[in-house]
Design a protein around this nucleic acid. Sequence first.
DNA 1: TTCTTTAATGAAAAAGATTATCATTATCGA
DNA 2: TCGATAATGATAATCTTTTTCATTAAAGAA
Lengths: 156, 156
Amino acid sequence: MPWRDGTGPPWWHGKIKGCGYRLTAPRQAILDVLSKTSKHPSAEEVYLEVHKVYPAIGLTTVYRTLELLVQAGMVYKFDFGDGRARYELSEGPKNIGHHHHLVCTGCGRIIDYTDFIDEEIELLKRTEKGLSKKYNFRIKNHLIQFYGLCEKCNTK
Amino acid sequence: MPWRDGTGPPWWHGKIKGCGYRLTAPRQAILDVLSKTSKHPSAEEVYLEVHKVYPAIGLTTVYRTLELLVQAGMVYKFDFGDGRARYELSEGPKNIGHHHHLVCTGCGRIIDYTDFIDEEIELLKRTEKGLSKKYNFRIKNHLIQFYGLCEKCNTK
DNA sequence: TTCTTTAATGAAAAAGATTATCATTATCGA
DNA sequence: TCGATAATGATAATCTTTTTCATTAAAGAA
């Protein structure tokens, strides 16, 4: 499972070790699941999926590992307003690159979008620079989300 | 307490009634507290504050009322990543107007900023228009947040 | 003003997500 | 291969938020 295909070890191999963490089977299984989905699974959803190939894993380990990966910058943690945290691999072969989310408040559907990202980045850069200076704030990250109703929920 | 000063009933009076809700003492007390703070209190913090002037109020009512006010568009609900929801009056005399937040991941401090808002609004408008069309998504709201370290946490 | 309807409230319990505890296991450098 | 110790998993605990249900009170009608 550690090898994604025949071309070598997964990209996260070095990252994990680089941070001084051990590369364990549960961690690899979790990363494997995250790298194969285009959804935004909650901790429990990750657990259920990992459990299929690694039944010995506990929910606690999933929570711990996800938090570790967030700290290591390998995973993003989101709140879409449904009372549980949701996770997404920050980079990888299958990833669509930097993007933001449309959140349907009707059905909870999440749409990843990359449109207008360049303009956003441009504005964010300027804003970050200005805010850093004015408030002496070292900005590390940003979050942009749109809320509304998706096609289905809108026509109901 | 329903009257903020001598100039008449608070602005929310009509809003509450307009939505078909009853104007009760607990609701007025909660709105009163929200209108007097520039912080971003959690439900419990609102409860503790309201409790000072209205000791009979229950935490349940605070949760219910805040949710109602969010639904009515009179209050915004935020997640700053500390595991509890935080609330803010959406408009009012004391309000600084449309703004976004800088979130310090070190100490949890929140800075409201209005800088660059015009440019942000401009971009958001264009983005909203484009996304609405492309994904048939009716956008109702947006969220922008910056995460990082405030002056104090940065120099530690 | 008094009455009546029904929304709103509060106490307590329940639910749901996440975290702490601790004995056991497994990684990985020496 | 061995040993130090990081990581794990089961369980219990914590914490926020929601549900339940009997009681109270707001506001229009009489």
